[in-house]
Deep mutational scan, measured.
Amino acid sequence: TDCSIVSFLARLGCSSCLDYFTTQGLTTIYQIEHYSMDDLASLKIPEQFRHAIWKGILDHRQLHEF
């Protein structure tokens, strides 16, 4: 599957948040998979999107835990 942040955000309906990640040089889900809610806040992601992205990260982690 596509591991880009572009497609990750698109699946979550949060494509408008892409610039918050790319300006930090973040391009793949693996770069953010251990981010906390505070990390997302420090990227200045608007609160209404933060929870959806956080949930997406948690779902991603569960899929990749062996």
Rank of each mutant, 00 (worst) to 15 (best):
T1Q: 11
D2H: 04
D2E: 07
D2N: 09
D2S: 06
D2A: 05
C3D: 10
C3T: 13
I5G: 01
I5E: 00
I5R: 00
V6W: 08
V6I: 11
V6Q: 14
V6T: 15
V6K: 15
V6F: 09
V6P: 07
S7P: 06
S7T: 13
S7W: 05
S7D: 09
S7N: 14
S7R: 07
F8I: 03
F8L: 09
F8R: 00
L9M: 03
A10E: 14
A10Q: 05
A10L: 09
R11M: 06
R11K: 12
R11L: 04
R11W: 04
R11D: 07
R11V: 04
L12C: 07
L12E: 03
L12I: 15
G13F: 02
G13Q: 10
C14W: 02
C14N: 03
C14S: 05
C14I: 08
S15E: 08
S16H: 09
S16L: 07
S16V: 07
S16K: 05
C17L: 07
C17S: 04
L18P: 02
L18C: 15
D19G: 11
D19H: 15
D19F: 07
D19Q: 07
D19N: 15
D19A: 10
Y20H: 10
Y20F: 13
F21N: 00
F21I: 01
T22L: 12
T22A: 12
T23C: 11
Q24E: 10
Q24R: 12
G25W: 01
G25K: 11
G25T: 03
G25F: 02
G25Q: 06
L26N: 03
L26W: 02
T27G: 05
T27K: 11
T27E: 10
T28L: 07
T28M: 11
T28D: 12
I29N: 01
I29V: 13
I29M: 15
I29S: 04
Y30I: 10
Q31P: 01
Q31T: 03
I32K: 01
I32F: 04
I32Q: 00
I32C: 03
E33F: 09
H34P: 04
H34N: 15
H34G: 13
H34T: 07
H34D: 14
Y35W: 14
Y35D: 01
Y35C: 06
S36C: 11
S36D: 11
S36M: 06
S36Q: 10
M37A: 09
M37P: 13
M37T: 08
M37G: 04
D38A: 14
D38F: 08
D38E: 15
D39F: 02
D39W: 02
L40E: 00
L40A: 00
A41H: 07
A41P: 01
A41G: 10
S42C: 09
S42E: 15
S42F: 14
S42H: 13
S42K: 14
L43S: 03
L43N: 02
L43D: 02
L43M: 06
L43V: 05
I45Q: 00
I45W: 00
P46D: 03
P46M: 00
E47Y: 14
E47W: 07
E47I: 10
Q48M: 12
Q48V: 12
Q48Y: 07
Q48E: 15
Q48I: 09
F49R: 06
F49L: 09
F49Q: 12
F49C: 10
R50C: 09
R50V: 12
H51P: 11
H51R: 11
H51I: 07
H51E: 15
A52E: 12
I53G: 00
I53M: 03
I53H: 01
I53T: 01
I53W: 02
W54A: 08
W54V: 07
W54Y: 14
W54N: 11
K55V: 08
K55P: 01
K55A: 08
G56S: 05
G56K: 02
I57D: 00
I57R: 02
L58M: 09
L58C: 15
L58T: 14
L58Y: 15
L58S: 14
L58K: 14
D59L: 08
D59I: 07
D59T: 06
D59K: 09
H60K: 08
H60R: 15
H60N: 13
R61D: 05
R61I: 09
R61H: 06
R61G: 08
Q62C: 10
Q62N: 09
Q62V: 09
Q62F: 06
Q62E: 15
L63S: 15
L63D: 15
L63P: 14
L63Q: 13
H64R: 13
H64F: 08
H64W: 08
H64D: 12
H64I: 09
H64T: 15
E65R: 08
E65L: 07
F66Y: 15
F66E: 02
F66L: 12
F66V: 15
